[in-house]
Design a protein around this nucleic acid. Structure first.
Lengths: 123, 123, 123, 123
DNA sequence: GTGGTCTAGACCACG
DNA sequence: GTGGTCTAGACCACA
């Protein structure tokens, strides 16, 4: 379910946290749904349990997850409602802005970039 | 010329370096063109001169810039030739891939994202 | 009778145990009085029976409760005698100390805090 | 400046975080003021640097602190403005509620508790 | 079984 | 000098 790249510049715990944000916002992780345990994720992705725990803890502090004592983490209620398309699009905005800045610096024509992205999204 | 955000997660020296790569690849910084001095950049953006120097140093090691004694940095010859569109598009690939992954996690329709990006690029 | 908050940071078994201490010290639970069964408490508060059992077990070890075969738990004799006011006030001391430390860190005037607490106690 | 009790039930990183919240709310830590470095706090209180770092990191995520790269942490701007008395009193509310619940369970007269607290606050 | 906390120590990134 | 990340491993608390 989670996609972790240990060699990426972005820290692992943050990769997990941000994926959780998106998966929950999209409703792919529904309200009340239990998450894989810290240890499971740690073994599956060959990372330290504490790294996973850190991501889960931050997600809990953010209100995304809820701790059921002795039973693990589940998706919190208020996050469970799938967000509207526009709310989800807003989560993408920072990346879109960075992209458009780079496109301008590279002086690339808009349609070329849009075609390339369209191809990636179509796959 | 440079666009620096000290509070961004990406380190400042890297922001500078990657902008130089793109501006040079696009030919916005032409071969032989002199760059603002380390001190100028540092003062203008309220940044530590060492940080700017580090970016310039890396760009020099990469062959993007050339150090002219007593005259500062200029855009190096071999980098000066503007790269082809496809080469420049390749520089954008990592960001496009990250974007498409996030779009899938957010379960957003491709055309919505393309329209939003098109709007940003059209401005 | 018991006031349990499963989502509070304080563990559930401890919430139960400490409430028992106070209710018995005040004589609200009198000597020989039977307690609700583990199952009753568990069902009523939607809590794991093991958790209730643990609290009861600790209370028994402390001499607060006594196990009567086949009849469940009752308030033990030596605990049953209501403690003096000063003894009961002593049970409050840790919380009062924590409170006074926080008041100082918040630089709040004593009378403001006393008025607010007085209002809460008056209700 | 910080008051840490390693043996308390409350985890160390949380003790630090909550003290920061109060000290900043009261203006005892003013806007822009630099905090002692992670290593200093760690040595001074004989705890692991990571424990301190965790508290600082959470405080940053909360917007209490701001990271100045290479220079350490300072009190963030929006937190710097000393909060009004009523806002600070609100931070005390959870503890006051817990206290009043315990007072009722102990069947202690309000004025006795208020006198004891007044004495503690007067010192 | 679950997650939480802490440590010691290594290594990195930044300025 | 600053903070950040990660690991391995120990131990605890809870259900």
């Amino acid at each position: 379910m989670l996609n972790i790249q240990p060699s990426a510049p972005e820290p692992i715990y943050r990769q997990i946290l941000e994926q959780l944000r998106r998966l929950i916002a999209a409703g792919q992780l529904a309200e009340g749904e239990p998450l894989p345990s810290v240890r499971e994720v740690a073994v599956m992705h060959a990372v330290n349990p504490m790294t996973v725990s850190r991501a889960y803890g931050l997600a809990e502090a953010e209100g995304l997850l809820k701790r059921l004592r002795g039973k693990g983490m589940v998706v919190a209620a208020q996050s469970g409602r799938t967000r509207s398309q526009s709310e989800r699009l807003a989560l993408l905005e920072p990346l879109l802005l960075a992209l458009s800045r780079q496109v301008q610096e590279l002086e690339l024509p808009a349609d070329l970039v849009l075609r390339r992205l369209g191809k990636l999204l179509g796959e």
